[in-house]
Amino acid sequence: MENLYTQLLEDVRFEEGLNACMNCGVCTAICPAAEFYNYDPRMIVDMVQTRNDEVIRDLLKSETIWYCGQCMSCKTRCPRGNTPGQIIMALRLLSQKLGYFTESEKGRQQFAVKRTVGDNILEYGYCVPSYDVEPERHPEQGPVWEHIYENLEHFIARAGGELYGKEGPLRRFTPEVMQELRDIFDVTGGLDLFDAIEEASEKKAKEMDMEFTKEGIDCEYFRHVYTFDSGIHFIEEPIMEDHETGR
């Protein structure tokens, strides 16, 4: 018996985020993800409050918990003071700790989040530094970004900074600062979470018969989780169409 509900309760955000939900659906009405994906946060909250471990296990392995964009608009509007977005955060964390996230297409993408943002934090001390926003992976950034990427030193200097300098925008952190950051991850279980994501992803890559490397983003499994979309996630008739034709 895994006692999944009990494990969720250990997360202070879950305790704070869920009082009794009356299923009014206001969270779904305001949710940007529910307009785009086949997604209904109201149902997730209702499933969790059954406290049924089988139901919760299905959620942890599902696509649906990965659709939320964490805008937290639901927090403002819930008449019971619940925060479905925080319940989602607790579910996602547990799904990764238990290795269930690799059971869904959207869950498997956590490997890409770890290998980009996660690794950036420990390598550079930034989540998304300019030099990691490669134009090939970000075509939507357009030709202005290509210009910046190729002339980064001048871009920062024109703003009055120094790329990789001792202070200011995109300064380089000393080894001592980077060690402090790593030690914080170590002491707080942050490295264990990274390891859990890596371990389950490597196992899944093997199952899917895909090349997997121990680091970096140059491997088949990374490219797959980063770009693959099966097309099963979207609502059939986007609400956008109604909106554009006037209401």
């Binding site: 997360d11 989040v113 943002v117 989540c127 279980g189 979470l193």
Partner: peptide, 11 residues
Amino acid sequence: GYHGDVVQFDT
């Protein structure tokens, strides 16, 4: 990283 769910609240 936190809102991308790879960084825990304690961290």
